[in-house]
């Protein structure tokens, strides 16, 4: 039986990818960002997941305004790094797991979540930056990756509660998959940031840390946070944090917090990072 054993949450700021690609990780500005992942790299190397389900958002790369899917699951065999205007990031092609992905699609759609299925799309920094943070820069990514792109660009995104429940449906789907696979789910984006208008640069450290507490210990409450609160308290792009609820829903109610990191700034953004393991998981 396949099993989701843990979740990884982190921001996916494009400048982090650029800093890595340009060899700036030891510079004083970036050093504290990457330091937060020293533990995580070792943790995931020890855990050796077979598959990562990576919840992220596309930033006008694979999807423009011609098609705006709310939830788009990557069921294809491979996904190439997108050219976001400065050439594709020099990172390996992402290999999917079409069989598990099709199984998840079938299961969660019958569970009343109307996914869009995508066999061909390029993946942008939203997906590749978290992989870099967790795995560094290998020749090939060490596991299969199933992308789940969530619209958070055009308001409204799916509600936090919807995301949380989709996570639960994904958990049920994975657990019904006959092959033995160890799966980790990533929920990325956030934390507080605003990239527009006169409030650009907004950071709410207190709120962000409270969200990390809620996500760990009282996710049902976190799922009820209304959009107006996200936007007012954490900025227009802070709303990306609904994606963290997908990954949280995919875990058991009781979890162990293995690692937490918070740092300001990563460019315009508060960098947040959380690793949770199912309490029942004996790692």
């Amino acid at each position: 039986m396949a099993k989701i054993v843990a979740s990884v949450n982190c921001s996916h700021v494009p400048a982090i990818g650029a800093a890595w690609d340009l060899g700036k990780t030891e510079q004083p500005y970036w050093q504290p960002v990457f330091k937060g992942f020293d533990y995580s790299k070792k943790w995931i190397a020890d855990l050796k997941p077979d598959v990562v389900i990576l919840v992220y958002n596309d930033h006008a790369s694979a999807f423009s305004l011609e098609v705006i899917p709310t939830f788009a699951l990557g069921t294809g065999a491979e996904f190439k790094p997108a050219d976001e205007g400065w050439g594709p990031r020099p990172v390996p092609t992402v290999h999917g797991h079409p069989k598990l992905a099709s199984h998840i699609a079938q299961s969660v759609i019958l569970d009343e979540f109307d996914l869009t299925l995508v066999n061909k799309m390029d993946v942008d920094h939203g997906l590749t930056v978290p992989l870099t943070l967790m795995f560094g820069q290998p020749e090939a990514w060490p596991c299969k990756v199933i992308p789940l792109a969530v619209n958070v660009v055009q308001y409204p995104p799916p509600t936090g509660n919807r995301c949380y429940n989709l996570g639960k449906a994904i958990r049920r789907a994975v657990e019904a998959y006959p092959e033995d696979l160890r799966v980790v789910i990533f929920g990325t984006g956030g934390m507080s940031h605003q990239l527009q208008g006169k409030r650009a640069g907004l950071i709410n450290k207190e709120w962000d840390n409270n969200f990390l507490d809620l996500l760990t210990h009282d996710p049902g409450k976190a799922a009820k946070i209304p959009f107006i609160e996200y936007v007012r308290e954490t900025g227009s792009e802070g709303i990306e944090m609904v994606m963290w609820l997908v990954s949280r829903g995919a875990l058991e109610d009781k979890v162990r917090e293995k690692h937490r990191y918070y740092h300001v700034p990563a460019s315009n953004t508060a960098l947040g990072h959380l690793i949770l393991e199912n309490e029942s998981f004996k790692g």
Binding site: Q194, W207, E233
Partner: peptide, 18 residues
């Protein structure tokens, strides 16, 4: 100025909510 503000913890939500 913006860069310095971010290094100092970003723009505070205080006074910027409404």
């Amino acid at each position: 100025e913006y860069e310095q503000m971010m290094l100092d913890g970003g723009r505070s939500p205080e006074g910027n909510r409404s």
